[in-house]
Design a protein around this nucleic acid. Structure first.
Length: 102
RNA sequence: CCAGGCGGCCGGGCAGCCGCUGUUGCCGGCCUUCGGGCCGGUGAUGGAGGAAAGUCCGGGCUCCAUGGAGACAGGGCGGCGGGUAACACCCGCCCGGCGCAAGCCGAGGGAAAGUGCCACAGAAAGCAGACCGCCGCUGACUUUGGUCAGCGGUAAGGGUGAAAGGGUGGGGUAAGCGCCCACCGCGCGGCCGGCAACGGUCGCGGCAUGGUAAACCCCGCCCGGAGCAAGACCGAGUAGGGGGCGCACAGGGCCCGUCUCCGGCCAUGCGCCCCGGGUGUGUCGCUUGACGCGGCCCAGCAAUGGGCCGUGCAGAGGAAUGGCUGCCCCUUUCCGCCAGGAAAGGACAGAACCCGGCUUACAGGCCGCCUGGUCGC
């Protein structure tokens, strides 16, 4: 499942068969958002933000993918942190809901 | 001071907190074939560019291919000399064009070997060409000025065009024509200067040879293919695979880009022996190299070459070299009590085996030299 915000998209999925208690993470930026300099900067900011937030708001045993959008490299740092935090909280709620159903 | 030309350089700085990665020191743990390797902690130190870009040339390096002769293709280069590992690069010079000048631009060999093309306009466009005009002769008419018709001569003039078969001036002529003459241009030959491209000069010819070769072509010189996902190693060693020897040999296949001749090689079946291992995993290749930078000296107009001293400067691998904050610098806008304050912005762009170039992109800024003009001394 995925959550989209103004400055980024976050996807999450539980580990396959041998599930661990660690958190997997990946970062990507498509050519749509700019040249190599812009894409690298966007991925570095996502990496820096996830380092601050994933330990608190991420779920062990899950893999997260962070996808850069047009504004990722340029928006305010606090705005990027807010967007990522709210996306992670929403995904956590969805995970609880789906595990409760099954 | 204004306008312009050329060359070179920089392309944000400082600090704090938290991270990534290469190398290395120490400590601890694990493994070991005792060489070392891996993990964790801690300290030191290095960590994008002038274009890292486009991947357009030239090389190094790696693997593959590589038998001789002849013929024919294909691609590239193109004034001359020098530099270089090499080049389509660089330097100097020559020629032509542009600019008052400093300077800039030029695919700049050959169009009297051949072929093709040259629209429109125009009478005529490559065996040149009589539309108007000019001139002569004959005839008719006549208001005695000429007019008309026919036959000739003529490329000076008009008009068309990108281009009209040398140009200007004079002589000559019925009018004209290199028909003749002078100068310029062109061609041929000699002499002089220069390594040469080429320049100068003298003589002769007497106008012949339109343009286009980034059209085919001709001439001269050069040229194997692929690329680090090249390639090598470790590893469990199944199938396929490869090599050697012996036996059997019809047609066939392969070997320089193609063809011809000559020459060489080979598979297929059986037996015996040996080698060896698929993989964007791991390790190596991987950064010390025609190396860069800072001085000094020598040769050279210069590009560059040589010598000495010092110094070092990234090596990732779904891809590190960063994230955030504060102050300063520059630009724009706004407020203003004209002291200052606030906000926004700071280009082009990210190494991927490594060098030498070219080309393209680029906010802002610095330095030096030169040319023309103006003002003052």
């Amino acid at each position: 499942m995925s959550e989209r915000r103004k400055s980024l998209v976050v996807q999450v999925r539980a580990h396959r068969a041998p599930a661990g208690d660690w958190i997997g993470e990946g970062f990507t930026a498509t050519k749509r958002i700019g040249n190599a300099v812009i894409r690298n900067r966007a991925k570095r900011r996502l990496r820096a933000a996830s380092r601050e937030l994933l330990a608190h708001y991420g779920r062990p045993g899950c893999d997260y993918v962070f996808i850069a959008r047009m504004g990722t490299a340029t928006v305010d740092w606090t705005r990027l942190l807010d967007d990522m935090k709210s996306a992670l909280i929403s995904l956590g709620a969805c995970l609880d809901e789906s595990s409760g159903q099954s």
